[in-house]
């Protein structure tokens, strides 16, 4: 058995759940998250690159998940066409874990895909502003803006939970234009 077989097997057995959790935070949609992970694993291992260990393989897969999510390369219809490889989708979430994950996903749903990606990479993956920008192929300024805007939205969603400026953003707001009904 060649090396990639063993790494793939370990990744599938030990890390696929974590990858689905990561993807679910990105997408907020369970079937799409599972399909993203499925596609990312196949894409990662299909390339003839060296995969020396599980952590490096997982890093490649996470990068692929993010890229595919941002690029929107898989339409919902295409993704659902692959569901036979995973689990029956008609079945309701099997356990109490689903409720908690769904609640977080509901909160994140107020964000745009790019805002969600920035938040997840910054606060779940613990990437720096620059690393997040590199991962998403945008500028650091764009990441700061997306994170800031995300925090504004989350503040509205979570009330007092979000009450200070995100790191990487200095907290000052420069008003470029503001519409007001009153003079």
């Amino acid at each position: 058995m060649r090396a990639w077989h063993g790494i793939l097997d370990t990744l599938i057995r030990e890390r696929r759940g974590a990858l689905v959790g990561f993807a679910f935070m990105l997408t907020g949609d369970r079937p799409t998250a599972e399909d993203l992970v499925h596609d990312a694993i196949i894409r990662t291992f299909s390339r003839a690159r060296r995969l020396d260990d599980v952590p490096s393989a997982e890093a490649y897969v996470r990068r692929a998940i993010t890229t595919q999510f941002i690029n929107g390369r898989r339409s919902r219809a295409t993704a659902r066409a692959k569901q036979h490889l995973l689990v029956p989708r008609d079945a309701p979430p099997a356990d109490a874990h689903a409720g908690e994950a769904d609640e977080v996903a509901r909160v994140l749903r107020v964000l745009t895909p790019r805002q969600r990606a920035c938040v997840v990479l910054r606060y779940l993956e613990d990437l720096s502003i620059d690393q997040t920008a590199e991962r998403l192929s945008v500028t650091s300024g764009a990441v700061k803006r997306h994170v800031h805007d995300a925090m504004q939205r989350l503040r509205g969603e979570l009330g007092g939970m979000v009450d200070d400026a995100p790191d990487g953003f200095d907290g000052r707001t420069t008003v470029i234009a503001r519409r007001s009904g009153a003079r």
Binding site: R16, G17, A18, V20, G21, F22, F24, M25, R30, A33, E34, P93, A94, D95, H97, A98, G99, E100, A101, E103, V104, A105, L124
Partner: peptide, 11 residues
């Protein structure tokens, strides 16, 4: 949220 989803999936 990620842990909960991972646990659900693994289950």
């Amino acid at each position: 949220g990620a842990r909960a989803e991972a646990a659900r999936f693994d289950g």
